[in-house]
């Protein structure tokens, strides 16, 4: 019982210290107002990357007007992806990019996506594609989540 009692004491002490120190303005985190989710749209704007929404992505998919790039880890890519998408995982992007460059011309329109609107992998891979000379690179922020929520066609290995 000593264990439980002391645990409660320590948790109370630490909680009180934490909330007290959180009043110090320098590092203060507004618990109610701060939104810790990465602001991916701002990140894309900063990089000057064009974005497409679900409807545009779906249209490009149907018309074959763009090559889709899945920037998620390969483990997820094989489990399910937008049909025809090529995998350039953010983590091993050097290999993925080299392979991709061998298959897709730099003139083609390329749309990069990742999990959904809270991941930055698509932006990172899009930047690297642009650095490799791809001129028409866009990001589909809704990503895998919006695509599957809309129950659009998928493929897997």
């Amino acid at each position: 019982m000593k264990y439980l009692k002391q645990t409660v004491y320590i948790l109370a002490l630490a909680g009180a210290a934490a909330l007290a120190v959180n009043h110090v303005p320098r590092t203060r985190l507004s618990i109610a107002d701060f939104d810790p989710r990465p602001d991916v749209t701002a990140a894309a704007r900063e990089q000057d990357l064009p974005t497409v929404d679900l409807a545009e992505a779906f249209e490009l998919f149907n018309s074959g007007g763009a090559v889709f790039v899945d920037s998620r880890p390969s483990g997820l890519f094989v489990q399910g992806r937008i049909p025809g998408a090529l995998n350039v995982p953010e983590k091993e992007s050097a290999d993925g990019l080299a392979q991709f460059a061998g298959m897709v011309s730099t003139e083609e329109r390329v749309i990069v996506y990742c999990d959904g609107n809270e991941c930055l992998a698509s932006i990172h891979v899009a930047e690297q594609l642009r650095a490799r000379g791809y001129r028409h690179v866009g990001v589909f922020f809704g990503g895998w989540k919006e695509w599957t929520d809309a129950a659009y066609e998928i493929e897997w290995d």
Partner: peptide
Amino acid sequence: NLAAVIMPWVELVAGVLLILNVWSRGAWTI
């Protein structure tokens, strides 16, 4: 945000208490 503010303090307080051997069973449990 609550977790981000409180958890590091739990780590710090429990870590210090364990080393000082004060309320060491509670600190160990945490």
